[in-house]
Amino acid sequence: MLGRLPIAKMLAATVAMTAAISAVMLPIGWDGQQASTAAVKIDDLLSVTIVVSAFFFSLVVVMLFYALWKFKAKPGDESDGEPIHGNTRLEVAWTLIPTVIVLFGAGYSWSVLRDIEQPAENPLTVDVFSQQFAWSFGYPGKDNVWSEGELHVPLGRQVHFKMHAQDVIHSFWVPEWRIKKDNVPGITTTAIVTPNRAGVYQLICTELCGFGHATMRAKVVAEPPAEFREWVGGLKEKVPQPLAESIVRDTEANPVPLGAGGA
């Protein structure tokens, strides 16, 4: 049965289509600017995924259109197709090959996850406070100074964000960093980021939190360490009492380090 199909040609068409799709899609910076060490790794994973996905998509399209072109019934033809009920080898192949590929995808994802969440020496800890519909930030290493609506971080140093939601769930997302983490009432959640590109970004709330959800944004400034020290030094206010209490009250969601797989 398979011998009667132009397998080589179909595969060639699939590969050509994969190459064409990849050539168009890979140069596009889908995720936008890269501004953290994680961004490059996540985008590389995305690129690999795009190529593999393009292959499967092309395979489906090529098979479908070949079948439609070759096996379309002539007008008035009322006969049946060939009584082929299956092909064990083919069925085993399209069970096993995708299994291997998705397991490879899982392994690759796992290794990226472990990399981007690997705690570094001497991180900067920043407390993130979220409430309907505003963000504020505390710097426990710097006398607990407090900044409302504006987050500054130094370049090249790992930052551990400790998140504390005051009312409902919010989610902390800076697209250029590729990092997102929910802020959950009652628990402390952690996100790890190493910003590596100076710039002004936006912190976006991505968990529906009420009528002000769409406008719950904050300004994020990633800057060289000297400028960062100057900015933090200029902060006068301390973290207000209720927010400071939430730090103590919240239980740590991940008692073990974030390393993927509980490593």
Partner: peptide, 21 residues
């Protein structure tokens, strides 16, 4: 994705050597 892929490929396999209307 594996059982789902099986379904997709089997539908495509059904089309081959058929008389598609």
């Amino acid at each position: 994705a594996v059982p789902t892929g099986i379904k997709i490929f089997s539908w495509l396999g059904t089309l081959f050597f058929g008389k598609i209307h």
